[in-house]
């Protein structure tokens, strides 16, 4: 069954907690005794969406498994900012091996746990978009195809951030990165490329695939919890703005995630065994421009003469998502 938002208690399900709700209806993040799996002292940039997304997701998984969790982490910002010698921010058993093998390492952990009869301990693999959609894609697909008992979480900040913001196959069209500079006839990233990994994950017919953003905590936690209810390969793709890489204000991280979803640029949905089972509807429809404008990586679209045509193409992408996933209620 799809996520049921709490109808109305001043803020409904929109805020992290809500003093008017039962404890069980509040988010994991609202709990005083949440696990803080990724704890203070990490070296993520101010306002890092990935740091936030990782804590949201892993805490939720910890909650769902009664703290019986092991995580394998791909190289990337999350790994670098959380475990520079001599300090680790993790409170869970955690391993970093390589950039491209998190899914396989996790498969190995799951195999070890199975053979040792410790099925109660669950395994998560996690990485950035680069580590997931590009270099780790083979291992990811292998893990999916074998239906290994692993939940893979991709923290998508739409570029290789740790190496200084280079294009990945998750970088959106028109975005400026260090390898798709805003110069030439078609400034920024090209149109028509990129890889839709949630769709590819679904094509593997794995039990559970979902997308989520750091702006909708209850939805994210619901999906992690739901994913932990399945055995076999599962995939959650979390949209996590990167203030540094996107040239956005550090306080706008959640706002941008919200706008990405509300514009339709990032469709939020879940799928079981290859079929979409629910979508997160747009609540306040807005044009893509509102999402693009606060980000320097799109600044070239808003120069003296706004690149109306490019913005329109991006709007088309959003509109197509809206249509494809039915993101708008008839009423809205």
């Amino acid at each position: 069954m799809a996520f049921q938002p709490v109808k109305f208690y001043q803020t409904g399900t929109f805020t992290v907690g809500n003093r008017l709700l039962d404890e069980q209806q509040r988010s994991v993040q609202a709990q005083e005794e949440r696990s803080n799996s990724l704890n203070s002292g990490h070296r993520a940039c101010q306002g890092c969406g990935e740091a936030l997304g990782a804590r949201y997701a892993i805490d939720a998984a910890m909650h769902a498994t009664g703290n019986q969790l092991i995580a394998a982490n791909a190289t990337g910002c999350l790994e670098v900012f959380s475990t520079p010698y001599p300090e680790s921010s993790w409170q869970i058993p955690w391993i970093h091996s390589l950039f491209g093998n998190a899914a396989a390492v996790a498969s190995g952990i799951a195999a070890a746990l199975r053979v040792k009869g410790r099925g109660e301990v669950r395994v998560i693999a996690q990485g950035g978009d680069g580590g997931t959609t590009d270099i780790g894609f083979g291992c990811l697909s292998g893990m999916f195809e074998r239906n290994d008992d692993v939940l893979y979480i991709c923290y998508d900040n739409e570029a290789y951030m740790n190496t200084g913001v280079q294009r990945s196959s998750a970088t959106p069209p028109a975005a400026r990165t260090a390898t798709t500079m805003a110069v030439g006839a078609q400034p920024g990233n090209v149109f028509g490329q990129g890889k839709n990994v949630p769709a590819i994950a679904m094509a593997h017919d794995i039990p559970y695939v979902a997308t989520a953003t750091v702006a909708e905590l209850h939805d994210l936690e619901y999906k992690v919890k739901k994913a932990m209810g399945f055995h076999g390969a599962r995939y959650i793709h979390v949209f996590v703005p990167c203030p540094l890489g996107w040239g956005a204000a550090s306080q706008d991280t959640i706002k941008l995630a919200r706008l990405a979803k509300e514009t339709g640029l990032f469709p939020v949905f879940e799928a079981e065994h290859g079929e979409v089972t629910s979508v997160s509807k747009i609540r306040r429809p807005i044009p893509v421009e509102e999402y693009l404008r606060p980000q320097k990586r799109f600044a070239h679209l808003f120069g003296q003469e706004p690149a109306a045509e490019v913005i329109a193409r991006l709007q088309t992408i959003a509109d197509r998502n809206i249509k494809k996933f039915g993101l708008l209620d008839a009423a809205a």
């Binding site: 803020t11 805020t15 907690g17 988010s27 803080n36 936030l52 804590r55 905590l217």
Partner: peptide, 20 residues
């Protein structure tokens, strides 16, 4: 009104919840 947003959204766990 104790919605826990600050407590939840801090990427650095730098908000301490003092209880109801």
């Amino acid at each position: 009104f104790e919605c826990d947003n600050c407590y939840g959204v801090c990427p650095d766990n730098a908000v301490i919840k003092l209880g109801p």
